[in-house]
Design a protein around this nucleic acid. Structure first.
Length: 361
DNA sequence: TTTATTTGACCTAC
DNA sequence: GTAGGTCAAATAAA
């Protein structure tokens, strides 16, 4: 990753990852000994979760600890509009016909530069005819096209808040020819909208009503290309899987929670986006008591841990932070234990070699 | 009345 | 010239 984050952020990443590894080892030891002293399994799992989550967030934010801290507190202000870069539709509104062509060209260029990634989403049986499961964003369909060589037409969607907030995220949905239950969803651009609830919009179906409910939360602003992060996560898979193999039933619910076993496989990693890096069930803090959480998107096949990740990311981070910053409130433990995600930040080992930084480049 | 969807036309890249 | 992508008017839905 090429960014100006400097050594400090890099070291922070290494520290976080080291801590995650150390805690995983600790948990593994407890699993074998069945001795619960001091920290419970749940606490350890939570801390591992927190460490890895922070590391991933840092990576997604371009390695910037400053941005990381900024994103810990959901902003109530609209994010900076991309319009300053790609031309303002508002200015077009004010001056119709003026510079429209030039702006169109600029927009076209910009689209080419937009990050693009593809998810494969399996539809639930009951709504297979309707389309892939919701991804949490509010999309407006603006076109449909028959594609040469494809049995099914491709649908084009853009963010509902494109005009309101200048969010130029788009997606294309195409049903898989061989497996009609499966959809290839290609996302282009990242959401810059704040996903404000549509006040006057009347959903056309109960499912859309549900979509609107899902959309009512702030989002992160993913800007980073996925490659480095994905490589990193691929590497992470090994140790964590070994934990799963010990039948913890906690990590990576690829069997128990409806996700197919596509997550974190190198063969599927390259097509994914950083916002999809973990299944939501993994992001979800175990300290929360959402009993129905894991069943929210049982039909999604993730190429890298769940296409729904972006949908819940920030809200989950908020939950994590709230859970981890308040040990006394944690339902998983009954003792006073600080779950501060920054606790011990600089205290652990150096299990991750410095060569990790080389892998980033 | 407002918002979303449909669909033919148009634009752009190859 | 063709295919993919987008626009925008017409239409539907709530």
């Amino acid at each position: 990753m090429e960014n100006g984050c400097g050594n400090y952020e890099q070291e922070s990443l290494v520290v976080e990852l080291n801590q995650g590894v150390a805690l995983a080892k600790q948990l593994k030891a407890q699993m074998s000994s069945e001795i619960l002293a001091g920290e419970t399994k749940g606490m350890l799992a939570e801390r591992i979760h927190s460490c890895l989550e922070k590391a991933l967030l840092i990576l997604r934010l371009g390695g910037s600890m400053e941005q990381f801290h900024q994103h810990l507190v959901p902003s109530t202000t609209a994010p900076e509009s991309p319009l300053s870069v790609i031309g303002s539709p508002k200015s077009e509104d004010l001056n119709p016909g003026i510079h429209v062509q030039q702006d169109s060209i600029e927009l076209s260029k910009k689209r080419k530069m937009m990050p693009t990634w593809t998810d494969q989403v399996r539809a639930c049986s009951e709504n297979a005819a309707e389309g892939p499961p919701e991804d949490g964003y509010s999309w407006r369909k603006y076109g449909q096209k028959d594609i040469l060589g494809a049995k099914h037409p491709r649908s084009y969607y853009r963010c509902t808040y494109r005009n309101i907030q200048g969010c130029y995220a788009t997606k294309q949905v195409q049903r898989n020819d061989e497996d009609p239950m499966q959809f290839n969803v290609t996302y282009k651009g990242t959401h810059t909208c704040t996903l404000a609830p549509r006040s006057k919009s009347a959903p056309t179906s109960p499912q859309k009503q549900e979509r609107n409910k899902q959309s009512n939360f702030p989002i992160m602003h993913y800007q980073q290309p996925p490659d480095m992060l994905l490589n990193f996560q691929t590497g992470l898979r090994v140790d964590i899987q070994s934990l799963e193999n010990q039948e913890t039933g906690f990590f990576f619910p690829t069997r128990d929670f409806g996700y197919e076993n596509h997550a974190f496989t190198p063969s599927t990693v390259h097509n994914s986006h950083p916002s999809n890096s973990f299944p939501q069930s993994f992001i979800q803090s175990p300290a929360t008591s959402e009993s129905t959480y894991f069943s929210t998107s049982p039909c999604k096949v993730s190429t890298f841990g769940g296409v729904n990740y972006g949908q819940h990311f920030e809200s989950d981070i908020t939950e994590i932070i709230s859970a981890t910053t308040s040990g006394t409130n944690s339902p998983i433990i009954g003792i006073d234990y600080s779950m501060d995600p920054w606790e011990g930040f600089l205290s652990d080992n150096q299990a991750f070699p410095n060569s990790f930084s080389q892998a980033k480049e």
